[in-house]
Amino acid sequence: MSREVNVLVVGAGVSGLSCAREAAAAGHSVQVLDRARGVGGRCASHRLDGIAFDLGVSFLHGRDPDFLAALREVPGRKLEGWPRAIRGSGRPCQPEAFQAGEERLAFVDGVTAFPKHLARGLAVRARARVERLDLTREGPRIVLEGGEEIEARHVVLALAAEQVLRLLAAVPDLPRPLASVVALLETSSSESSLSLCAAYPAGTPVPPWDACYPEDSSILQFIAHESGKREAPPFLGLVLQARPSWARRHVDDPAWPEALLSEAGRVLGTWTASPSATHAHRWKFARTDLSSELSGPVLVQLPSGASVGICGDRFAPGGGVEAAWISGRALGRRLAALEVA
């Protein structure tokens, strides 16, 4: 039977988009779905009083020449080397980011510039939440919330491990190669992320650092001097991010934004605790735990000739956006090598 699309990618984060691009470039018809309003996943920016706040990934870093080239293709101004001025000696979320040979940059238009650029020319459907994955005799079928069904020859799950597990666990008689991937994903976990954007009244003194990694806080891991990334910012903006261990315990506690603010007040000075506006965001399943990293994406061929692929920041060494992009591209290339229907 004919399938509506050749490659259906679930998840429009960097990994899913990079996979979709490769597959599309090889001539596959590709459809990307995401439950959110826009693309990017954790490469997300939120506008607060006219300023973009990067509330997940704050800056991009890597050493893979192709990845670095992909970043530099993105239109718009870049801040090479950001963050340069660091306050505090706490452990960064991605310690490799500051190792020799690693390049860092931030986008003046916000980190979403990167996924938006990756998504150009792709068929991306936003606000499409996947409810179920069926593996029928003819091939995979995605069932959306609301009941709509989409059939595809190849399905790519570019989601957090927990979300992949939720979809695969509901599939009856899971083929053995997928069962083994489930066993693999069950040995690993994602970290939660709690992120608070805070705007301060005009005239608030601008801190002399780009990023702060507090060394003596059990609550705060990272504070970004967010407005410092923007062109002529009218006011001071910070993004506060919780430590993963703290985030895990407080992800369902509605009081977490206040706790982050009061801790920022302790770390940076009391002025920090009283912003003029805030926006809170949580990711229950954010970045991969680095002890769980794998070396490549998975593409399981089904007897019907269809296949199920899985990629994401877990499926390449190093974690982070670079790993997400590399794993997506690797999977896209494997799909590209398959027959184009």
């Binding site: 053995r176 190669p177 069962a179 083994s180 991937v181 066993a183 693999l184 040995t187 794998l294 070396s295 490549g296 994406p297 998975v298 593409l299 399981v300 499926f315």
Partner: peptide
């Protein structure tokens, strides 16, 4: 090794683990 013991080792999983 754990996958092997559980009888769940497959080419795909081993490639993903590929060390």
């Amino acid at each position: 090794y754990a996958l092997q013991e559980s009888g769940l080792d497959t080419v795909e999983a081993n490639q993903a683990l590929g060390f």
